[in-house]
Amino acid sequence: MPNVTMTINGREMSTEVENRTLLSTALREGLKLTGTHIGCDTSQCGACVVHVDGVAVKSCSMLAVEADGATVDTIEGQASPDGSLNVIQQAFQDHHGLQCGFCTPGMVMSASALLKENPKPTEQEVRDYLEGNICRCTGYQGIVNAILAASGQDVAIAAE
C-alpha cells in the first residue's frame, strides 16, 4: 500500500493508504485527526474542508495519494498553541455560529479561506461563498454574522 507523507498543521506525518483512499479518510482513520468530518458522499456538505497548499478543498474530493508531499491545514491547527481560539473561531463562539458542531470544522476552514481571498466580504458574498458548506442547525445567520465580525465589520454581538 502506498505511504503518504504530508506536513499537517506544521508537523510532518505519514500514513499507509489504499490507492482509493480519500484524503478525508486518511486524515480521520490513518492519522486520527478526527476534527475533519464526513457528512456526505457526494462532495456537497463541506464538513471535510481542509486547506491543501493554502487552498480550501473538500478532502473527500481528493485522493490521499494526491496530497503526498503537500502542506495540509486542518481544524486541529487553527487555535494558538496555548489553546486560545483564533479570530474566526472566537467570532463563531461570540455570534452563536454553531450548535451541534458537526459542520463547524468545515465552516471555519471555508471562512478562513474566504477572508484570505476577500478580507471584507459583504453579507451576500459570505452567503455565496458558503454555498458548499451545509449547516442543518443554525439557519446560517450566526455563521454569517461570525464571519462578518471576524473580518472586522460591525455586528451586534450575541453572547456575553
Binding site: L33, T34, H37, I38, I75, E76, Q89, Q93, G101
Partner: peptide, 21 residues
C-alpha cells in the same frame, strides 16, 4: 443571561467526540 456556550470550544478546535471518531 446570554452566556457563551462552553461546548463550542471543543467543536471549534476539532476536539469534539462524535461516535465515528
Amino acid at each position: 443571561a446570554p452566556t457563551k456556550r462552553r461546548e463550542d470550544v471543543r467543536f471549534l478546535t476539532g476536539h469534539g467526540s462524535y461516535t465515528d471518531d
